[in-house]
């Protein structure tokens, strides 16, 4: 019984990692660059969501889960805007500058986004208003419970992954993205506007990240400006584990990391959770250095 509950706990944590990991993987797939600022964008999703929901609730006078629908749109648009801006200001000028400079630029952006959030919203813990999150729990098999919110999070995660997959593999823009992922120069010769494709990637990746921020923020109810690091780092590792650049891989890596962490914390001790989880991950990477699904390097995205 406890095993089943722990599995549900693990899948929930894992789906958050997976949602954030999608953003890392998309950018890496196209630019071969690790966008460390992704965690910061994710965190801004939580903050912007807080502002929008607070404003909406003040406007209509009561809190309802329906407020999350317009909030979600606002957050995705706003964070996608941040993403495009960051790309334009901090990454595009460095695109031909080798691998190290954009990496440092990304780390710098991560610090800037974090400090901005702290200075704008303050350092204290922020809490979403109660009543925004659909309540209720479903009892499966006796004491094992899954909350409506957990089911929603899982559904949204899988739906998004499927949509993203279809977008990348079944649309013209997606095909262009895969072309850019393989070779910028040849893509340009084929008439693809590489800058625009990359800007699109920075529209979708951070948009998804912002959405993940809103979901994590409302699910746990409280957060502070360090949110980006704690989830961002884990999600980054999940992306590597699944095979960075690979969309189903990000999902798989996130789930696996969440479940391993949960079992380590639940059956051994939370103090040893990270040691156990990362020893296992290192072993996986020793045997599969490109990650679990990161085999076909040429077709990556």
């Amino acid at each position: 019984m406890q095993f089943l509950q722990q599995t549900i706990n693990g899948i929930t944590i894992g789906s958050f990692y997976a949602l954030v990991a999608l953003g890392y993987t998309m950018v890496y797939g196209v630019l071969k660059m690790i966008n460390f600022a992704h965690g910061g964008m994710f965190m801004w999703g939580a903050y912007i969501g807080l502002t929008v929901t607070t404003g909406l609730v003040a406007l209509v006078g009561y809190a309802s889960p329906w407020a999350l629908v317009p909030t979600l749109i606002a957050v995705m648009v706003a964070v996608a805007g941040i993403g495009v801006l960051v790309e334009r200001v901090a990454y595009r000028p460095l695109r031909t500058a080798g691998r190290l400079a954009p990496l440092i630029s990304a780390l710098g952006m991560a610090f800037i986004l974090e400090s901005l959030a702290r200075n704008v919203y303050g350092a204290s813990w922020k809490t979403y208003l109660p009543g925004l999150v659909p309540g209720g729990r479903v009892a499966l098999l006796g004491n094992v419970r899954i909350s409506v919110m957990q089911v929603l999070v899982l559904l949204v995660s899988f739906l998004l992954m499927a949509l993203l997959y279809l977008f990348v593999y079944r649309t013209r823009v997606g095909t262009a993205m895969r072309a850019v992922a393989q070779d910028h120069e040849v893509s340009r010769l084929m008439g693809i506007d590489v800058d625009r494709i990359i800007a699109t990637v920075f529209l979708i990746g951070p948009g998804l990240g912002g959405m993940a921020g809103l979901i994590v923020g409302t699910y746990y109810g409280s957060f502070d400006f360090t949110l980006g690091w704690s989830f961002g780092l884990r999600a980054f590792i999940a992306a590597i584990l699944g095979g960075i650049g690979n969309i189903p891989g990000a999902m798989l890596g996130g789930m696996l990391l969440g479940i391993v962490e949960t079992f380590a914390a639940g059956y051994i001790s939370p103090q040893w959770k990270d040691v156990i989880a990362y020893v296992i991950l290192i072993f996986i990477l020793i045997f599969r250095p490109t990650g679990l699904l990161g085999e076909r390097v040429a077709e990556k995205l």
Partner: peptide, 17 residues
């Protein structure tokens, strides 16, 4: 007798135990 990691957000594993 055990400890959590304060950087975590999700304590459901230890709570379940």
């Amino acid at each position: 007798y055990d400890a959590i990691n304060p950087a975590d957000k999700d304590f459901t594993p230890i709570l379940t135990r």
